[in-house]
Design a binder for these strands. Sequence first.
DNA 1: ATTGATATTGATAATCATTATCATTTCTGG
DNA 2: CCAGAAATGATAATGATTATCAATATCAAT
Lengths: 121, 121
Amino acid sequence: MSKSLPAVITTLERAGGFASAQEVFQLMRKQGKSTGLATVYRALQKAVSENTVDVLRKDDGEALYRLCATGHHHHLVCTSCGKTVEVEGSAVEKWANTVAKNNGFKKVSHVVELFGLCQKC
Amino acid sequence: MSKSLPAVITTLERAGGFASAQEVFQLMRKQGKSTGLATVYRALQKAVSENTVDVLRKDDGEALYRLCATGHHHHLVCTSCGKTVEVEGSAVEKWANTVAKNNGFKKVSHVVELFGLCQKC
DNA sequence: ATTGATATTGATAATCATTATCATTTCTGG
DNA sequence: CCAGAAATGATAATGATTATCAATATCAAT
């Protein structure tokens, strides 16, 4: 499950490092790369699980994938212009794990997103 | 577009103030309230636009709605049975504000939800 | 009360991203 | 080579959300 991954990642780079699965698929098609939609999804999921790609959701629920340099982090998104800042959150990580343990939960994941208005807006 | 809104909000309250549109719909049905799925969606959207309800997304992209009037707290939700625990998060609050300030953001809000498997599941 | 204009509802169909299937192709080691 | 495993990709299935639209409720003004 890995021959396609590099091509997908490369395409994601060319797209500005930020695109939906569908967009990546379309792009690869236009560039002549024969590929299947399912393969694109598989590659992106793999990349996400390896923390080389980051996923977040548009308002309508569509997933957007983005290359991310460093491990796990969260986002600070401008609700007006969409500008996004990557934010480190090890403090939140610890907090989440503690809370989970205190309540007997396992396999915890968390969703942490910050919204606000950036300087320009 | 408002006769159904109260009923929807009430149901959302009964659900612990935290549920998906589909769940709200099912609940209303079980309680004998005749209603349509589309109406539930419309009511929830209205509520969101009026800031009486808050929306966030599960990992699979499904939208979860939650009352945002009742104090501010977070949730630890079992992804299997749906059991929900309310969690205090002043630590996260502080963190969010600090991060926002450091990046020049104002009017910050945040979405923090924890998911995992509870003891039974 | 009765009309007529307007807004709301809700069943149903349409949309669209994401997943599952599965036959086919491509790799791999022996 | 060759079998077996892994990867691919076309296609179908899933499931949440949205659009459609006829039927119904609301309400102001006569």
